[in-house]
Nucleic acid binder design. Structure first.
Length: 588
RNA sequence: GGGGGUGUAGCUCAGUUGGUUAGAGUAUCGGCCUGUCACGCCGAGGGUCGCGGGUUCGAGCCCCGUCACUCCCGCCA
């Protein structure tokens, strides 16, 4: 017989009645009624009730009195039918009449309760992460992540992808996010960088002839954090050779549907919608639109000017959204929303409304427009009696961005963003470049290995900055419910085009050679056409789990300031280590 | 770099206009209890009100500074 257990805490049922079993786990709760004592024993499979009654030996009964929460306990006994069953738990028909008890390890009283709805705050739970991990919500998140990883591997393996590891100690490339940097003892004064993504390596694997590659891989970015951003995070990194955009989209739309089916049992029989970047910005004010609901942004720039309302007359852009069924909002609600959009995080100057109330039209601009004009503006943009129009005006990018945020906020307030509903889509035709006014140079919107669209290739070589700025990237993002889940592109595989890209980005030939010489060289030796995509694995898991934060889907995450509260990392290192690395710290 | 929120018992929180000995729930400990399953009942212990300074006869509460956590903006090719 097994030393510790014959069964886990989740599997015993009526069919096991009269069996002698051994079971082990953590004491979830104890209910001591005097001469009768119940113990809920828990492991990751479930909870089973132990009962210690007069049939137990005296020493067992004495031992039971001293048991506390989270003791690791092993019990032996007979499975019996309960006299009062509990239909709330899967094992509720049975219990184990304990004949023998072993405390495998006692426990101090945990600082918070190990319950689905714990009483612990985030900070405390982070410090005692190993206790938090015992809780059901964390266990199901970690299990979901495991399931996702397994299904990704199954799908990609079946499609002929090879899983290949790439190095973590690589070279710093000052484009893009800040690198985490690792000093080298053997090469004093020099540093490795941890990869922000295995981008160049996967392209080199294409040159190496591994025409379908993937990796579930840790990536590192030394940037400020968010609920959905960690300094180290995991990507499903993929690359294919001899493909164009359509091949990549088909392959990974297939993977997404496979995961929806296998993990959530949701079938998508239709193709995922596709939207150009321009349309996404125009109608949703975002390059990652949440299309679980409509409320699309409409433009009013040309039709509301010339009525002496200076805010409109001076605006580069005027746009609005129509919020269904909110026409009877109170003044207080409207004022509160106006304050909401004026917060620096949204940054709007103000909020104009047209209420289509039961007793007529009411608006914050009815000094400038007649009720008929306002009704026409409203009805032309999809409003009907009982609806509310919000309008913002100002600089184009800022305003449309603020409208996008208001749209999401109203969607949330109206319950249109159900986390059990999934709306995936592809966004494509991103601009290749972004002009930065401060540094007076172009930056790659995606990364410098993204190819221009074939039809824009000629413009990419133009001498005119304006023409180059218009070039579209052969790039695509995968979006679910307003969250960017993945992004990729068809890459440059031509050494000359890659040189041109570095030139456009303002690198001298020497600079480019110094930083990216290895890849330019590789492209001289028969690089196949290739492209790929990388998915944010943690985010995908969180979305599938219906959560905003990725933290619970990572066993040991960092806090908001990049610290590990449990380890208390990062920390200083001792003088000997510094000396070996030939590093001296400077006090500021 | 910036904005919002929070910080009071092990934990989660309340604490009025600045005024007596800072409370509740829960957890812990002790007692009673043979069908509980958030067991119940009785009792007890438990506080650097984040930290430092200031105003005041008097500060958990007001002011200044600082730290930590959290959400967001910038940033994240």
């Amino acid at each position: 017989m097994h030393k510790y257990r014959t069964h886990n805490c989740g599997e015993l049922r009526a069919e096991h009645i009269n069996k002698e079993v051994k079971i082990a786990g953590w004491i979830h709760r104890k209910r001591d009624l005097g001469n009768l004592c119940f113990i809920d024993l828990r492991d990751r499979y479930g909870v089973t009730q132990l009962v210690i009654d007069e049939s137990a030996a005296a020493d067992v009964r004495t031992a039971a009195e001293k048991l506390g929460r989270e003791f690791v306990l092993q019990a032996a006994g007979k499975v019996v039918e309960r006299s009062s069953k509990n239909d709330k738990m899967p094992t509720g028909e049975i219990e184990i009449v304990v004949s023998d008890l072993q405390v495998l390890n006692p426990s101090e009283t945990p600082p918070f309760t190990i319950e689905d709805e714990t009483d612990g705050g985030e900070e405390l739970r982070a410090k005692f992460r190993y206790l938090d991990l015992r809780r059901n919500p964390l266990q199901s998140a970690i299990k979901l992540r495991h399931k996702m990883a397994q299904e990704v591997r199954k799908y990609l393996d079946a499609q002929g992808f090879l899983e290949i590891e790439t190095p973590f100690l690589i070279k710093s490339t000052p484009e893009g996010a800040r690198d985490f940097v690792v000093p080298s003892r053997m090469n004093a004064g020099e540093f490795y960088a941890l990869p922000q993504s295995p981008q160049t390596f996967k392209q080199l694997l294409m040159v190496g002839g591994y025409d379908r590659y993937f990796q579930i891989v840790r990536c590192f970015r030394d940037e400020d954090l968010r609920a959905d951003r960690q300094p180290e995070f995991t990507q499903i990194d993929c690359e294919m050779a001899f493909v164009e955009r359509e091949d990549v989209l088909q392959t990974f739309e297939g993977m997404a549907k496979f995961l929806f089916k296998k993990v959530l049992n949701i079938e998508f029989d239709k193709e995922f919608p596709r939207m150009s970047y321009n349309d996404a910005m125009k109608y949703y004010g975002s390059d990652k639109p949440d299309i679980r609901f409509g409320m699309r942004i409409f433009e009013l720039s040309d039709r509301v000017k010339g009525k002496n309302f200076s805010i409109f007359d001076n605006a580069e852009y005027i746009g609005g959204i129509c919020v269904e069924g909110c026409g009877e909002y109170s003044r207080k609600q409207l004022d509160e929303l106006t304050d909401w959009v004026k917060r620096p995080q949204v940054g709007a100057g103000g909020l104009i409304y047209i209420q289509w109330k039961n007793d007529g039209i009411k608006s914050s601009v009815d000094k400038f427009y007649t009720p008929e004009e306002l009704r026409k503006i409203a009805s032309d943009n999809g409003a009907k009696p009982g609806d509310l129009i919000f309008i913002m005006a100002g600089k184009k990018n800022q305003t449309i961005n603020a409208l996008g945020k208001l749209r999401l906020e109203m969607g949330s307030r109206l319950g249109l963003r159900d986390n059990k509903v999934f709306a995936p889509l592809w966004v494509y035709d991103f601009p290749l470049l972004e002009w930065d006014e401060e540094t007076k140079r172009f930056y790659a919107m995606h990364h410098p290995f993204t190819s221009p669209k074939p039809e824009d290739l000629e413009n990419f070589y133009s001498d005119k900055k304006e023409t180059v700025a218009e070039v579209c990237a052969n790039a695509y993002d995968f979006v679910i419910n307003g969250t960017e889940i993945g992004g990729g592109s068809i890459r440059i595989h031509d050494a000359k085009l890659q040189q041109r890209m570095f030139e456009v980005l303002g690198f001298s030939a020497e600079d480019a050679a110094k930083r990216f010489g290895f890849i330019i060289n590789a492209f001289k030796y028969g690089a196949p056409p290739h492209g790929g995509i990388a998915f944010g694995f943690d985010r995908w898991c969180a979305i599938f789990g219906g959560q905003e934060s990725i933290r619970d889907f990572i066993a040991f995450p960092k806090n908001n300031t990049g610290r590990d509260a449990m380890l208390d990392a990062p920390s200083g290192i001792d003088e000997v280590q510094l000396k070996e690395l030939k590093i001296r710290l400077v006090k500021e």
